[in-house]
Design a protein around this nucleic acid. Structure first.
Lengths: 124, 124
DNA sequence: ATTATTGTATTAAGCGCTTAGAACAATAAT
DNA sequence: ATTATTGTTCTAAGCGCTTAATACAATAAT
């Protein structure tokens, strides 16, 4: 997992977002084991408390569950994962279209842009 | 101008982002007058210091300029505005495509989605 | 000249985020 | 039984963001 944080948002919120994407995208498989808090914290370069806070939030949202000492697992409820996937996709789309339209791009412009966009592209 | 802030990001940063969109999108015309800090602050429901901080940042980036007592103005340098417009569009696109691909959407899927998306849509 | 407007700066307080350090609780491993 | 692992909780400190209150600086309006 690649952790890069920006400074203008709480780290724990960024962790929640990243892990949501990972789980919803299937890179963390349903039912799969999650590394221990302390390991994740070390890997991400943050305090265990901060990682714990993020994981607790994901638990509150039903994406993770934890057994006192056997560790933490991704939910195996595929419906929950799929719901999050759709919800994230919709939120991203709404945000993107809103911003692009404010910037003067129409739907057709955007669709064309999306299909042809390559990383490092400059013709936005 | 419509101000709605989320709680997990500094208000001043959100103001900067909103005003950038407004300026880059031409809703605040180049050379146009910006309301006084105190008015903007009142309208946005934030402390004048917070608004001042956001405006100072936009000034630092060359999007606004201020004359001691005649008020504040949007830059009339069209090239600067256009550069910001492209930069924002690119950043939004990169973010959007990155997230959507993680969620399992391919370019063609996304393009189709974008063209057909309506507010309140659920088929993401 | 005087007053009002506008941008700018300062200080102090409160709050949330992050860290460090430590401890506790439950159970898997030995 | 004992030990190691893992999740959970707590306290104290530091720092940045926000607010409130106030004042100063420059100039437009009168």
């Amino acid at each position: 997992m690649r952790w890069n944080f920006v400074s203008d948002r709480p780290i724990y919120a960024q962790i929640v977002e990243s892990m949501k994407l990972f789980i919803a995208g299937g890179e963390l498989a349903p039912g799969g084991k999650v590394p221990p808090v302390r390991d994740l914290a070390a890997e991400a370069g943050v305090n265990p408390n901060t990682m714990q806070r993020a994981l607790a939030e994901l638990e509150r949202e039903g994406l993770l569950r934890s057994n006192r000492t056997s560790g933490r697992y991704v939910t195996d409820d595929a419906a929950v994962v799929e719901a999050v996937r759709l919800s994230l996709a919709k939120a991203e789309t709404v945000r993107f279209l809103g911003a692009m339209e404010k910037l003067g791009y129409g739907r057709a412009d955007i669709a064309r842009l999306v299909e042809n966009f390559k990383a490092g592209d400059d013709k936005a």
